[in-house]
Design a binder for these strands. Structure first.
Lengths: 318, 318
DNA sequence: CTGAAAGCGCTAACAC
DNA sequence: GTGTTAGCGCTTTCAG
């Protein structure tokens, strides 16, 4: 059997409560005794039993995150941020991939709720009602989605779209088209708002490579000189289809994405895209969750985005 | 406060032990009472408190996985497999990214050990000794690594290398070079074995895009007609460098990778590579872990790999 | 087949 | 400052 708090107490010649206090409320115990306890703890390699602790405190010291698609590098990046910040606080993170399934998403949160102190929900596809219900079950922080009364961290998609269009127009493009993502995705709606009817929207398409393949076909029919993809994965699909059709990017058509996933810099031509503060968003989400656990009211934070100009966009006159 | 087993017992007019049995040892209770209990459970929405349960059983019902680099799509794929199989068993999974840091890796396993029933360790860079020590701490399953006395699931890298070379030679290549990965990586060693000195090795290089950039530079000096990259990420870097140098792939040089990450099909030219049964490996790892928990001895399983021929390799005479 | 009771390891009143 | 004690919610003997 593992070493328990009693073993430590016995060897340090104090009571179990003193050991407990020395460990979790250092201020309440005399420095010398505390040191003695700590020495014994180190000597015995004592590790408090989390189950016992959480049984009594009601806290698990864990947090959960559910993402819609781990194959989209956008989410691993968020995950890293969450892990980093959570790790600093000694919190472990449960992870789940909902595979773009709204019901799965809700189900996963419900399952997690029982064993975490709170969950981070990335780009949920659920209705506001369901999300509000989930937030009722466990402290919730949304990423890229707002629901009244629920904390969230947003990445400014609207401004990102604005930056893309400004860039495109500065290159002389007048005829561009937006290749839309899932209608229920908050990011998509925000990008649409940023578009302000300055370009027609096609779609919705699946927010992945395959979706981009399809989107490119439709977009070609419009005669537009620039394609604005909902995200990088889709843009990669667009690039691939255009390459296959022997259409030169950016000579004939300019293409932009969203997210700045690592492959955006690796493909050719390298993709002009909007960088999202993914890792930062993960960290902020953990902070917001921590605040909620301390009793703070729900809060929303919006992080800035920034256009990254690479090789997939070019002056129309060239 | 949440509903407890006592609430259920009271309402179902049975003792708590009967409720407990109805839930976790259905055979020990009369069918009719069991049904009554189950009805009450459903009605009240009772969920057993995991902390209390694990305090007494010593099991957490969780498992952990640590991967070296979540940005390499290879690992999200493994993660998915793990999640899928674990989910079927009602097990949750803790996740951690060691960012290619051997000490971090060990530290993460130690931290996890306290709160999981076992951990899956992907492509560890640690020494056999450290891994054996970790395996002593908690049931361990290795992916892409063998250590005596520890369960592992392997993907047949040697055969993959063999398939690549056979393919290359069938295309008339005689002069090819292997761009090596981290010397401590088991996969790298296995690939080297598969090479059987039929080609020189360069490197080691970092197993990522940047590493590929560097590797391509060195490889070009050799005058080889085909570059075999340690993995796809590296191959992507190679492709990128060659494109930049205006060297045509596969017309002038053929390039192959390993892993068949999703981007291998998305880049241009699409990459000839060795498909790894990543998701399957994740599932098998969970199975092996479950077996160990049941008291089975350590076991190793090797999964087959398969060459996927795409557009980055071509007959040397074309 | 079912119930009573004894803890699992820890924290948090409550005393001193 | 420190010790004593009563549980947290559950499983598991042990009786019946």
């Amino acid at each position: 059997m593992a070493v328990t708090i009693r073993d430590v107490a016995r060897q340090a010649q104090v009571s179990v409560s003193t050991v407990s206090r020395a460990l979790s409320a250092p201020g309440l115990v005399k420095e010398t005794t505390r040191q003695r306890v700590l020495d014994v703890v180190a000597g015995l390699g004592y590790q408090p039993n989390r189950a016992a602790r959480s049984l009594i405190t009601g806290r698990t010291g864990n947090l959960g995150i559910v993402v819609p698609d781990l194959e989209n590098p956008f989410y691993p990046a968020v995950l890293r941020g969450v892990q980093t910040r959570a790790g600093e606080a000694g919190t472990s993170v449960f992870f789940c991939d909902s595979r773009e399934g709204p019901e799965t998403e809700a189900e996963l949160v419900r399952t997690m709720a029982a064993q975490v102190d709170g969950v981070v929900l990335c780009s949920p596809l659920q209705s506001d009602e369901v999300i509000a219900e989930l937030a009722d079950l466990t402290p919730l922080v949304l990423i890229n989605r707002t629901v009244p009364g629920v904390s969230s961290v947003l990445m400014d998609s609207g401004s990102g779209m604005d930056q893309i269009i400004t860039h495109l127009e500065s290159l002389g493009h007048k005829d561009y088209v937006y290749l839309g993502g899932p209608a229920t995705a908050w990011s998509h709606q925000r990008r649409l708002q940023g578009l302000r009817d300055r370009a027609p929207m096609l779609g919705p398409f699946e927010p992945n490579f395959t979706g981009g393949l399809t989107a490119a076909q439709e977009a070609l029919k419009t005669g537009a000189t620039a394609f604005i993809a909902y995200n990088d994965l889709m843009a990669l699909g667009v690039l691939s289809h255009l390459a296959e059709q022997n259409i030169k990017v950016p000579a004939q058509i300019s293409v932009t994405g969203f997210d700045n996933i690592i492959y955006a810099a690796m493909c050719s031509p390298a993709l002009t895209t909007v960088a999202m503060p993914t890792e930062e968003a993960g960290k902020v989400a953990v902070d917001l969750l921590a605040a909620r656990l301390e009793g703070a009211p729900p809060e929303s934070r919006e992080l800035p985005t920034k256009l990254v100009i690479r090789a997939s966009t070019r002056n129309i006159r060239c």
